[in-house]
């Protein structure tokens, strides 16, 4: 008589949740969606702050000063700013490392079709991946331009308003900024909807709302940011 009715399987090695998530393709997407949402939250606040340039030099500069003294005396000078910078750095690095690993996994050894026709779905993968690279380069340029003022030719320390106007007085400042924002808009149009699916909240009914909502949020963020260089170009801000 058979004593065992099933073959013995090796006991499952259990892992801590973060390690298990990091190992799986779904887990990496979860990390991408959470870090992406953190960055979106930051962008909304950043955009709202930028809009203050339309209230004039004094208001904008005092807002920039407030950002540095926010939380005092509990936090040191620029303490809040540095907390945000660390959070964003962690988010950006985790987002990019996951994106690069998943992209390499998807394209490595992929057999090519011989029809000459590209595979479908290339639109999304292309705009997400190339848009991501554009955003990465832009983030570096943006920090060198308006934070460290390394590449900003007419910059003065302590005058964010003047530095901003100096950037958008150059044609390349406008081109780089607007191109990056278009890439951002496309990235968010798919990204916000995708994050809802990755986090498992997308259902047939809710997706009827998530799709247009993603487009709307992407549009608001893009337009809100683009308003600033347009303002400088048209002389509304000078």
């Amino acid at each position: 008589m058979a004593l065992d009715t099933r073959t013995k399987r090796p006991a499952k090695t259990s892992r801590a949740v973060p390690a298990a998530l990091w190992r799986s393709t779904i887990g990496k997407k979860v990390i991408m969606s959470i870090t992406g949402l953190i960055m979106i939250g930051y962008l909304v606040a950043h955009m709202a702050g930028n809009i203050k340039v339309f209230s004039g030099e004094e208001k904008f500069n005092s807002y920039a000063h407030w950002l540095r003294t926010f939380g005092e005396p509990v936090l040191p000078y620029e303490g809040f700013l540095w907390l945000m910078r660390v959070l964003l750095l962690v988010a950006v690095v985790a987002h990019i490392v996951s994106a690069v690993q998943l992209t390499r996994r998807a394209v490595k050894d992929r057999p090519r079709s011989r029809t000459g026709k590209p595979r479908g779905g290339g639109y999304v993968t292309f705009t997400m991946r190339s848009g991501g690279v554009i955003l990465f380069l832009f983030i570096i340029w943006h920090i060198l331009d308006l934070t460290t003022l390394t590449v900003n030719e007419r910059a003065e320390v302590g005058n964010p308003y003047g530095n901003l106007v100096a950037t958008f007085d150059t044609w390349y400042g406008n081109v780089i900024y607007i191109a990056a924002l278009l890439a951002l808009g496309y990235h968010l149009k798919h990204g916000i909807w995708a994050a809802a699916q990755t986090l498992g909240v997308g259902t047939t009914t809710r997706n009827r709302v998530f799709r247009p909502a993603a487009v709307l949020v992407a549009l608001v963020i893009t337009v809100g940011f683009v308003a600033v260089p347009i303002g400088v170009m048209t002389g509304v801000v000078s």
Binding site: R15, V17, I26, L199, T204, N207
Partner: peptide
């Protein structure tokens, strides 16, 4: 439907969090 992928992600996340 594509939404099944969202449901799979939800099931996976719930199970992962309970695995701890």
């Amino acid at each position: 439907p594509l939404e099944s992928i969202s449901t799979l992600n939800r099931e996976y996340l719930k199970a992962s969090l309970k695995r701890a």
